[in-house]
Design a protein around this nucleic acid. Structure first.
Lengths: 137, 137
DNA sequence: AAGTAAGTGCAAATCTTTCGCAATTAGTGT
DNA sequence: ACACTAATTGCGAAAGATTTGCACTTACTT
């Protein structure tokens, strides 16, 4: 039931580093590899950045985490959930708003109808400004 | 009327490098800085990559060009036009489909209504797969 | 024609991500 | 518990993209 099993069930070895990386991604929500490393270091100071990168990749391969591109900020990882969602990324304050993919269905359908394009909104954020930033300068 | 004026009107000096960078962005459509440099070199072999980067930034500051993030492929520049458009970026073949912003209006409106989010679809591409890539493996 | 500030070239610095390789360690069988 | 093997880690170096400092050049002004 524990954490162990979800990793081992995927055919992965259970290392402290790997568990911590996964835990950090889950705790941080949309963190950069750097931020994940930072977080892991609080528990496991010796972890190497390469190890973080490799684990993020490995965890993504087995479907436990996913990354998306948030424009300027670079790549960010988040835990996989049942709920696939799109990301609205405020370019001013960096806030990320999650939007259930259903809310985007009619849009993606129209892109399919109009352009034959099969949209994957989960993978790339949508840029813009959140309410409060929009109301500022 | 000529090219000179559009640059000078923006308060910029008219250098061969700058003109060529602008011309390259216009000719290439959605080119990476590297590609712009490559193109400029055919006319002006000595141009330095830094100069290309600096000019892209400068031209963007005065509004003559814009960049957008196309996921994995990195940053791409295109000329500013009357026609703002969104980019659909096929993750398999890299093709970019331009979509008039009108076609996205009801979607962005719904994000505004639902989340108070002011979407800027021009800035970040939308990932997915084009028709033909979708029909392959 | 001379002055000056913008622009350029060059080399080095940064930043992010990847890679090779030797040392370590988790999971397996004994 | 013990040894074995392959996966994983740490480390240092490498690669790719973009930025920066600085001295030299050049476009524009007067």
């Amino acid at each position: 039931m524990a954490d162990q099993h979800e990793l081992r069930d995927k055919g992965l070895r259970l290392t402290p580093q790997r568990e911590l990386v996964l835990a950090a991604v889950r705790a941080l929500e949309h963190a950069t590899p750097e931020e994940v490393a930072e977080r892991v270091k609080s528990t496991h100071p010796g972890i190497n950045l390469s190890t973080v990168y490799r684990n993020l990749e490995t965890l993504e391969n087995v479907g436990l985490v996913q990354h998306s591109h948030l424009g300027h900020g670079g790549v960010r990882y988040h835990a996989s959930t049942e709920e696939i969602h799109a990301h609205l990324n405020c370019e001013s304050c960096g806030t990320i708003i999650e939007v259930p993919i259903d809310a985007t269905a009619s849009f993606t359908q129209s892109l399919l109808d109009g352009y034959g394009f099969h949209t994957d909104l989960a993978h790339l954020a949508i840029a813009g400004r959140c309410e409060s930033c929009f109301n500022k300068p």
